[in-house]
C-alpha cells in the first residue's frame, strides 16, 4: 500500500462486502416468494436479479429481497420495485430472462418495462 489511489481502488473493490448493510441503496426489488411463488419459479427470478446486480456492480444502487406475502393469483411470480420507498412497478409472470431485462431497462435505464407489468 503506497498511495491513496491504491487504497481507493482497494476500497472500491471491497465496497460490495458491506454496502448492503448500510441501507443506502435507493432501489429495492422485492420478489414474491412463499411456497406458491417458489413453485412458480420465484427462486430463479430472485437469483437472476441477484446475479445481474452483482455482475454490473450495482450493489450501491439496488438490493433484491423477498417477501412471502407478495402474490397475485394466476400471475406468479410477482416482483415489486420500490424507489426511495415508493412503488414504481409491479411485474407479473416473471422469469429469469425477464429479470435481466428489468435490471437493464428499469434499474439501470430508469424505464419501467411496461410489457411485464400488471
Amino acid at each position: 500500500m503506497k498511495t491513496l489511489a491504491e487504497l481507493a481502488a482497494l476500497r472500491d473493490k471491497a465496497r460490495n462486502q458491506v454496502a448492503m448493510r448500510e441501507g443506502k441503496a435507493k432501489t429495492k426489488i422485492v420478489v414474491g416468494m412463499g411456497t406458491q411463488g417458489i413453485d412458480a419459479g420465484a427462486r430463479d427470478v430472485l437469483l437472476a436479479f441477484a446475479k445481474e446486480l452483482d455482475k454490473d456492480n450495482l450493489f450501491e444502487t439496488a438490493v433484491v429481497t423477498q417477501n412471502a406475502a407478495l402474490a397475485i393469483d394466476g400471475k406468479l411470480p410477482v416482483v415489486e420495485v420500490y424507489e426511495d420507498g415508493k412503488k414504481t412497478a409491479t411485474y407479473v409472470n416473471m422469469t429469469a430472462d425477464k429479470a435481466v431485462k428489468v435490471v437493464n431497462d428499469h434499474i439501470k435505464g430508469g424505464k419501467v418495462v411496461a410489457d411485464y407489468t400488471l
Binding site: 481507493a8 482497494l10 473493490k13 462486502q17
Partner: peptide, 17 residues
C-alpha cells in the same frame, strides 16, 4: 456492521484513508 476480523471490510468503510 463489519466483520472485525476482515480488514477489507474496514477499508470498505473508508478505513485507513
Amino acid at each position: 456492521l463489519i466483520n472485525p476480523e476482515v480488514i477489507e471490510e474496514y477499508i470498505a468503510r473508508d478505513g485507513y484513508k
